[in-house]
Write a protein that binds this DNA or RNA. Sequence first.
DNA 1: TATTTTCTTAACACAATCTTAACCTGTTTC
DNA 2: GAAACAGGTTAAGATTGTGTTAAGAAAATA
Lengths: 228, 228
Amino acid sequence: MTVLLVEDEANIINLVKAIFKSVDYHLVVAGSGREAVSLVASHPPDIVLLDLGLPDQDGLDVLGRIREFSSVPVIVVSAREQEREKVRAFDLGADDYITKPFGSSEFLARIRTALRHANFRHNVDVLMTQAVNIGNLLIDFEKRVVSLNGEPVHLTPIEYKIVSLMSKNIGKTLTHDYILREIWGPYENDNQALRVNMANIRRKIEKNPAQPEYIVTEVGVGYRMADF
Amino acid sequence: MTVLLVEDEANIINLVKAIFKSVDYHLVVAGSGREAVSLVASHPPDIVLLDLGLPDQDGLDVLGRIREFSSVPVIVVSAREQEREKVRAFDLGADDYITKPFGSSEFLARIRTALRHANFRHNVDVLMTQAVNIGNLLIDFEKRVVSLNGEPVHLTPIEYKIVSLMSKNIGKTLTHDYILREIWGPYENDNQALRVNMANIRRKIEKNPAQPEYIVTEVGVGYRMADF
DNA sequence: TATTTTCTTAACACAATCTTAACCTGTTTC
DNA sequence: GAAACAGGTTAAGATTGTGTTAAGAAAATA
């Protein structure tokens, strides 16, 4: 069982090490957000403990970057009690949010619970790879680049998220609601923005946007990335 | 989305009701542990919010009883901060533990997270019946795609609903009334729309629509999806 | 701050889908 | 055999859904 701790303060690192003495988890420490993301990509841990007080970037951005290509369970650890931050963490895909100071046995119990949840997820996770080919289209999740016939295609952040989401569900029809929730969060429910983005994406990746090959419309339901 | 709140104090019930005003969840209240267990068994909710301060029995016993037969997500709500109790709750299978008082948006975010976890669990179950083969017809529920001899067949939303419903009841004759209620809701009682849709479906999936092989008519009763 | 890029929103044209009605065929009832 | 009934077929019009454009707002970048 490998645990990735994203933390820069030495005393917290030591505290966690002490807690883990009793339970035989293998602990890996990342001192920065950048290091954390690349470690999750190169050596996927079983669970991530993410402290929000990082030196190089906002901890929640790190969570977002991780969630672009991995569904590893992430427990956010923070000294901040602000509700808005908690909500944002959960909606970005955090599995739990613990505020410091915390008791060691509760800490371990929450880790066990997150791992229990993750067991059910594993099936889905296997499908997550670093890159996907669809016809002449290549989506590289790790590099965060989409290219058509070898030529890189420039996509805006939202466009990339949509293409990425569709690519992770090749052949599946994704409903409007599902896409909206995944891209804009749980509150959005207006298709218009999605339609505009689809039009823009198609202009960039389809030979004939009026008769799309890659992302086809399922009228009244949603969109589907074709499987070639 | 049905939420079962296990709680006996009226002011907390009202608080939760007020919080749920904004989100269209259907709230069911159980005033005792006994009632909660029997409700989970008889009308399985999507999530359970379990208060530990119950009159008739220990809240954690209720959790244990529920876990004997159900894996519905359970969020424990408690005024008690004791770590030992939290750990016991998690190890009995609680999905989260919230201490009162709590902020409404964090509360909702934690509910969303628990439901998200449950979805993965549910998906694993669904994967069992992700697709059905009937002769040369394939109905893929997960992808929401129907294909005949490997060629995708385009169905409108209503057509797909009908084929999907019939496919989940292979060999069974479904009455007109039943199909109408399932597809159009409880008020519809005119067969005409169903007949038109059947004609359109048959034109798309049957070799000879006048002598259908897949969906056959049971005169005076309804329709039946043939089992090959 | 100025500039560029991206996002949101509204308006409109066009396309797909749904409903309804009329008419057809075949079967059952008297 | 005629009438009544059940279901099938077709097509027109209404309704709803989608694609496209563009303008202004917001955000990111220089």
